[in-house]
Amino acid sequence: MDALYTAVATAGSAGREGRAATTDGRLDVVLAPPAELGGSGQGTNPEQLFAAGYAACFASAVSLVGRQNKVDTSDISITAEVSLGKDETSFALAVVLRAELPEELDNAAGRALVEHAHQLCPYSKATRGNIPVELVVE
């Protein structure tokens, strides 16, 4: 792969409790486990950051596929739900991607658009075969 851009971020040894920041200073967040996991909930967490990144990346992929197929995707909305749970050995992630598409796009065409985007999205490629990702077209 020829890298077009590289993001660099650092988190301290406290991991889920502390701070994470990018080298360019554009992202600097306090990290804290959510209350549901016994934390204070007074910061963001890796699952929220992953959900935001995946939603943004997937929305771009849907827009690209829309442009390629002359489909207006200006009113799309992608929501990524990232769940942290336990598997046989430790912890694991699962993702649900909810695509809210324009009403004029019929369900079959919308599903095809989302499935094609899922083949192109770098986050989808990275997760494929590693964690379950469910696509929901609304």
Results as ranks from 00 to 15, higher is better:
L49D: 00
L49T: 01
P33H: 14
V65L: 08
G110F: 00
E17I: 04
G110E: 04
S90V: 08
Q119A: 14
V133A: 02
G85K: 00
G38T: 11
A80H: 11
I131Q: 12
A20W: 01
R98M: 07
H118P: 03
A59C: 04
A109R: 12
E81K: 02
L113H: 06
Y123N: 08
A32W: 03
T73H: 10
V8D: 10
V82L: 08
A108K: 13
A94G: 15
L84D: 11
V95K: 04
A3L: 12
G85S: 01
A80K: 07
L84Q: 04
A99G: 02
E47P: 10
T127A: 15
G43H: 03
P122E: 14
A3N: 00
L120D: 14
E81R: 00
I78E: 04
L64Q: 04
L37G: 04
A56H: 05
G41H: 10
A56C: 02
D24P: 00
G25E: 04
D24S: 00
S124V: 09
E104R: 13
D87W: 04
T23I: 00
G129L: 10
D72F: 07
A20C: 05
S74D: 06
V29E: 07
L97N: 05
F50V: 05
R128D: 07
A3W: 10
G43W: 10
K86T: 15
P34W: 14
S83I: 01
A117S: 11
A59D: 09
N69D: 10
T44H: 10
A80Y: 08
D28F: 08
E115Q: 15
A35I: 07
V114H: 00
E17H: 08
D87E: 14
R98K: 11
A112G: 02
R67Y: 01
R128V: 06
A55S: 05
A117Y: 02
A94W: 09
V62F: 11
N45P: 03
V137T: 14
Q68A: 12
L64Y: 15
D28E: 06
A108L: 13
S77D: 09
E115C: 12
R16N: 11
A99Y: 09
A35P: 02
T73Q: 01
A117H: 02
S40W: 05
D28V: 12
K70Q: 13
D75G: 10
V71E: 05
E88A: 15
F58Y: 03
R16L: 08
G41C: 07
S77F: 13
C121Q: 03
R67M: 09
L101S: 13
E36Q: 02
D2Q: 07
A11L: 02
S124E: 04
A92V: 12
E47R: 06
I76V: 06
D72G: 03
S74L: 10
V82K: 04
V8T: 10
V62Y: 04
L105F: 00
